[in-house]
């Protein structure tokens, strides 16, 4: 059986996805038995020209991690789509825009003004900024990739075949991917296009904490305010904001096992269009269901004030592909 030609391409990424793959440890040998890497900048020495030199469709599996932030990220995504039969969006950034897509929030200040001019350590009297094209005296040009207006998910620019969410995808998920590749290598069959290689249900189903029949809460606490958290009971009634009810399973519930509320790096479950909205509506309906009618406006206000950062709380990993980001973006365009 010929090995699957595999390319791993990086967008706006922290390379945690690469480390997650290396964290397979001895299982990396299984990957090596299955795959022949033809491009993987973090670990190997192939250059862009090596990838371009391959025939279209010659790469069997193309894995992309990171968001689409620059013109180069976009170009590399397009090259990968051309060269690879199958493209996999790997990790929260490629799946939903991830943390880098918090860039897209409707800020008043330009990002360049802050980081190249206004931070306190800056010494830039000439107001130099990175340039896409630098003309040299000799007439030559040097270039930098263009910074796109927003950071987005991979499927906002190319057709994606499979999705592996998580920040980063956890080892059990990567093992699942290895199984898919094995089956592909042996039988030539692949899962239906669009499959998310992760759990089907919500994180709550995987978390294992005991949920009351009707979840309700009366206030939210910051992690530093909570003294003792019952390790067996659902976090939400204990006053911990947890994205579990709106989030896809498959991560092994690592955060909730540590008494830490989920922030949704696996993204929403099937059919949910907007991860944050789904969670906000879930939380609203859970708000102290028994006593809501008896609650004064002041008390309600108090609870709401405990969530002064809804975007960073409910859209931490999915802002770039959320409905609300499209609204913000439309507004800016006008």
């Amino acid at each position: 059986m010929a090995k699957l030609k595999t390319a791993i391409v990086l967008g706006a990424t922290c390379a945690g996805c690469d480390v997650a793959i290396l964290d397979l440890n001895e299982k990396i040998f299984e990957v090596d038995d299955l795959c022949e890497f033809v491009f993987w900048p973090t670990a190997m020495d192939f250059k862009i020209d090596d990838l371009l030199a391959l025939e279209d469709g010659e790469v069997d599996i193309g894995i992309y991690h990171g968001a689409i932030r620059t013109s180069e990220d976009l170009e590399m995504a397009e090259i990968l789509r051309k060269k690879a039969k199958v493209v996999v969006a790997f990790g929260a950034c490629a799946n939903f825009g991830g943390i880098p897509s918090l860039d897209n929030l409707p800020y008043d200040q330009s990002l360049f003004d802050l980081v190249y001019e206004q931070v306190p350590s800056m010494d830039n009297p000439q107001g130099t900024v990175p340039l896409e094209i630098i003309e040299l005296k000799s007439g030559d040009e040097l270039t930098l990739p263009k910074m796109l207006k927003d950071a987005g998910a991979l499927n906002s620019v190319i057709d994606v075949d499979y999705y592996v969410p998580g920040c980063p995808p956890m080892v059990p998920l990567i093992e699942k991917v290895v199984d898919v590749l094995k089956k592909f290598s042996e039988t030539g069959t692949l899962p239906p296009k669009g499959t998310v290689i992760a759990g089907e249900g919500t994180l709550c189903e995987e978390c294992g904490r005991e949920k009351p029949e009707q979840i309700s809460y009366h206030a939210f606490f910051s992690p530093q305010e909570t003294k003792k958290i019952d390790p067996d009971k659902c976090l939400i009634p204990q006053g911990i904001i947890c994205m579990g009810p709106a989030t896809r399973s498959g991560c092994g519930a690592l955060c909730t096992k540590m008494n830490v509320g989920c922030r949704g790096c696996m993204g929403p479950t099937v059919k949910v269009k907007d991860h944050g909205l789904k969670m906000i509506s879930a939380l609203t309906s859970l708000l102290e269901v028994d006593t809501e009618e008896g609650m004064t406006e002041e008390q309600l206000e108090k609870i709401v004030q405990r969530i002064p950062d809804p975007l960073g709380t409910f859209y931490r990993f999915t802002y770039g592909s959320s409905l609300i980001s499209k609204l913000h973006s439309d507004k800016e365009d006008k």
């Binding site: 706006a12 620059t70 943390i99 860039d103 802050l114 931070v119 910074m147 950062d309 709380t313 931490r316």
Partner: peptide
């Protein structure tokens, strides 16, 4: 050849959540 502007988007976040965001640097 790229940057992600962490200094901007940690603005507006809970201070205690900055350590849950910046590891992605």
């Amino acid at each position: 050849t790229t940057t992600r502007f962490f200094e901007k988007f940690v603005e507006g976040r809970f201070m205690e959540h900055v350590p849950r965001i910046t590891p992605r640097i």
